[in-house]
Nucleic acid binder design. Structure first.
Lengths: 329, 329
DNA sequence: CTGTATTATGAAATCGGTTTCATAAAAATC
DNA sequence: GATTTTTATGAAACCGATTTCATAATACAG
């Protein structure tokens, strides 16, 4: 690989001049510029980003920490983050944390060694001290899709309370009264907020959400299946269910369909997120869509913008997507 | 951030010694080592990977180029590659090519500037000169899941011919005679090989595969839906279909089910890949599983191993996974 | 035509490590 | 105890860029 020295030698100039041609950081005589560019072309010169990064203390990298790359929602977020990062001239370093706090901590340290320009955390485990560690380092970071309660850390996420409101309003508008809600893990603010919005809206419409009808899930397909079986056994009166994410909703539909329960004929199901599969499953899943692309755009923008116009916390509005899994009651 | 100089100063030694303590590259007096380690702890020193990489001409990075991060198969591969790469002390730089040859070329150049230790291409577009470019650079690379015809470039992929054989044998064992095959894009060797294995095996069992029963798809859910409609309209005699990947198979099931065709009662469907959804769909999709994890392990291993024991081309055996989408005929 | 302002350029320092080479100190040999 | 061998360490070069500062070359003003 040719270095800037080789270019300088071939063009008969100093490497400072080559650097100036490359970065347009100071005016260069037209003649000289031409010679330099010719040399660059001839040698197929490409600047070494490690050297550049070393001097400028910026690796032109953005780190993205994800609990599970293969999860349909997260991989969608990865895709959008990569796209916006690269559009801004950054590469993406991707790492799977597997929800392991130790791994998270180690990864943060590693990434900081690389002079990353920022780190985006996707649903960082809430036991981890990731955010504290980052805040201490001074490197910008954003949490996506999971906030710490009462914390000062920057995040961008959907307005989960409103998601609950939208879900409840829709089910009410379809005439449902006997309603259940399958939540995410109970220690996560998303689960709590979604449930609160859901519950409050039902109450405002004089519909009680029986505590027995609030089922605790963990956002996985598997638990959707399990809970669907429980509902079949113990709660036959239910006419509609809101699962707080699509995988659980689809897991439930899976079990119901296997047991010859018709959807939405016998029971209505609603999800949240709007993953690709939501449109593809039969029946199509009515769900509350999270604006993932916008979230990613804002997160990246936030990292690479100057300190002054960096937001701290941002709530985005979710949106109802109507398909075929909810019927009138 | 403390640098190696700060550590050296605090410990009262030269930075050469600190480097030796860090990398165990030469013996250091126990006393000295202790002092250095203490200084490291005190300053919370972390070596700067850009500087290290600059000198050693290795960024400890592996590049992964993917056509679509959000695709269930590809995101699975991303996950495995990341896992094996990190276990070996490398970070993963992920980039989405969107099947755009220009973007691919640009990305390769960018990654090479970072002194990546290798690049893995996932289903690189076959119009692109990616492999040629890489070969020229001298940086190790591996193609996953797509080979160039008659090319000398290293790859690791499933034995697609055998996949076709496995699919055909299974359908034959279930008594099917009127069989159709939905292929991937016709210019991809995977499609061709799979079809060849399928066709040959049917022929060996005296079952003709009517050319009209070979339908051309593009590996997407969407085309599965479209082709299913075509089959309903024009090929009612078919009793079993092998779609050359799971998304197409699921797209087809989607359309059939919507049209009240029972699976496997009225028609049997078989896929390939064994994506997560294959187990989750109702009915569960019988499919030919690709050993993705093994592929990733080998690809990473290959990149980071010394020149001498680097493989060139590797075919891995696929495996039949039986679920509920194929019935007896 | 001289003196000043402007523009283009190069030399050298710098970023934070690794690595080579020389040498001082300690240990081993006779 | 002198000589050789071994071990531990530091000084300095180097990786490939950027950036500061000084200066040569040119343009401009009077």
């Amino acid at each position: 690989m040719a270095s800037i020295n080789d270019v300088a030698r071939l063009a008969g100039v100093s490497k400072a001049t080559v650097s100036r041609v490359l970065n347009r950081t100071a005016p260069v005589h037209k003649q000289t510029e031409k010679r330099v560019n010719k040399a660059i072309r001839l040698l197929q010169y490409k600047p070494n980003l490690l050297a550049k990064g070393l001097k400028q203390k910026s690796g032109r990298l953005i780190g993205l920490l994800v609990p599970d790359i293969n999860h349909p929602t997260y991989s969608l977020i990865v895709k959008h983050v990569e796209s916006y990062a690269r559009a801004a001239g950054f590469h993406l370093v991707l790492a799977n944390t597997g929800n392991n706090p130790d791994e998270e901590a180690r990864l943060i340290d590693n990434l900081l060694c690389r002079n990353v320009d920022g780190i985006i955390f996707l649903r960082v485990s809430n036991k981890s001290l990731a955010a504290e560690r980052m805040a201490q380092s001074g490197v910008p970071f954003v949490l996506i899709d999971r906030a710490y309660e009462h914390s000062p850390f920057p995040f961008v996420m959907s307005d989960n309370y409103m998601a609950g409101v939208l879900a409840a309003r829709y089910l009410i508008s379809k005439g449902h009264h006997k309603i259940a809600c399958v939540t995410g893990p109970p220690d996560i603010s998303a689960s709590i907020q979604r449930l609160a919005g859901f519950q409050d809206t039902l109450k405002q419409n004089d519909i009680a959400l029986d505590p027995d009808h609030v089922l605790e899930g963990d956002f996985s397909f598997e638990c959707g299946r399990r809970i669907a079986r429980d509902i079949l056994d113990t709660l036959p009166e239910i006419s509609a269910i809101w699962a707080q994410n699509d995988p659980m909703a689809i897991g439930m539909m899976h079990t119901f369909l296997k047991n010859r329960i018709r959807i939405p004929g016998d029971i209505s199901i609603m999800g949240m997120d709007d993953i690709e599969l939501a449109a593809l499953f039969v029946p199509g899943l009515t769900t509350v869509r999270q604006p993932f692309e916008k979230m990613c755009e804002l997160a990246v923008q936030n990292l690479i913008s100057s300190d002054s116009d960096r937001f701290s916390q941002l709530l985005l509005m979710p949106e109802l997507v109507e398909r075929d899994s909810v019927g009138t009651c």
